[in-house]
Design a binder for these strands. Structure first.
Lengths: 211, 211
DNA sequence: GTTTTTGTGTAGCGAGCGATACAGAAAGTT
DNA sequence: AACTTTCTGTATCGCTCGCTACACAAAAAC
């Protein structure tokens, strides 16, 4: 995919595809799918419409690619936190904490692109909305898996409702994204994340090893 | 405003203004401001474009009126809960619980119109987005006031960060709205609301009256 | 140098957008 | 009845949308 087999034959592309895609990501992230017009994109990407269509297909395909690359570059922190931390609690705690930072990086669109890029669901872009919803639900299932692992490990009470706890975490994440879009600063969002973790169920006995 | 001074002179309106406005509310609530076109509105409201413009001004004015009436008919439960319950905790608890119900009423757009109706902020409708953001921030300040009241009453530890706690509640509300839009059912949302309340800070001593 | 291939720029397609001009219809006023 | 006022339906307006036809430019292949 990346390695070019041999020299291209025709006239070479006069712009850097990755740079242009990055600009497209920023545009979609900032304004959402519908509200980002082709002329917005060509202006931001610094290319003409025919070049855009030649390089990326159509608006829909460009958006799909933007979401994919966004996930790799900016949206992976939740998955990473859950995978790298020893317990679900630590993973979620880190994910929430990192969200506070990620959602408020200066000179970058605030909040989560997947959460906010297609909330206005016009019939014409219903497929886009459905695709993003699926991604969010996939994320919830990922969190739920981490919760179940904690229950199995005895780090959470056996009666814990894993589905609800996962939905709760997903909701607070969406809420923080929303809050960030409205201008809430990083410090306040971190305080929100701390508070949210107080809701994490406590085990009856702290540890059964100290007699 | 409501009482008609005397008999109207010209040809009477052939549709009920309130019913038409209700239809407009549903449309904006479901699809958002930008994604609801004038032709969508005229179809749903059962009137022609000139009638719409004569009765409501332009699209922007119709939306403003829709948001106002939405707040009176559907969005007032938070203010009501905070005002009627004896403590902030009880008020927020009730608001969260009612949100779970309000956001998932069958045959009604899911989630909160103010939160979701203008998240896609195209430059053309930046004013609309700003207006809605202001309403949300006003809501946060309302919650913050209730929290401060609890602190003063000794129902919350003196060191409680009122601003952060208010932002947390606002975030979980926004998250639940998002979650509801994605299809999460009322039962699960209620479980989320219960979980969220576990984050509410506890006072050191339950009550200083029992010796 | 000629041919082939591919990208670029101009210019414009049909469709839908928000909004309105205009003529006619339906009520009260006289 | 005639007149005035207001609302309604048709038929658009100018504009922007996503998208593309077409001629020209710039590279490799021969």
């Amino acid at each position: 995919m990346v390695a070019k087999e041999s020299k291209q034959r025709g006239r070479p592309r006069s712009f850097d595809r990755d740079t242009a895609l990055e600009k497209a990501i920023r545009s979609f992230w900032e304004h959402g799918y519908e509200s980002t017009s082709i002329s917005d994109l060509t202006r931001e990407m610094g290319i003409s419409a025919p070049s855009l269509y030649a390089a990326f297909g159509d608006k829909r395909a460009l958006f799909e690619e933007a979401v994919t690359v966004y996930g790799r570059l900016y949206g992976g922190f939740i998955t990473r936190a859950l995978a790298e931390e020893p317990t679900g609690r630590r993973g979620v705690e880190r994910a929430l904490r990192e969200a506070a930072a990620e959602y408020t990086v200066p000179d970058r669109p605030r909040g989560c692109m997947v959460i906010s890029a297609a909330l206005n669901t016009a019939p014409a872009s219903a497929e886009v909305a459905a695709s993003l919803r699926q991604k969010r639900q996939q994320n919830v299932r990922e969190i739920e898996r981490a919760v179940r692992a904690d229950i199995a490990a005895g780090d959470l009470p056996p009666g814990t409702d894993a589905r609800a706890l996962a939905e709760y975490v997903s909701a607070i994440l969406a809420g923080m994204s929303q809050s960030a879009r409205d201008g809430t600063d990083r410090h306040t969002l971190e305080a929100v994340a701390d508070l949210a973790m107080n809701a994490w169920p406590r085990t009856e006995q702290p540890a059964p090893d100290t007699p």
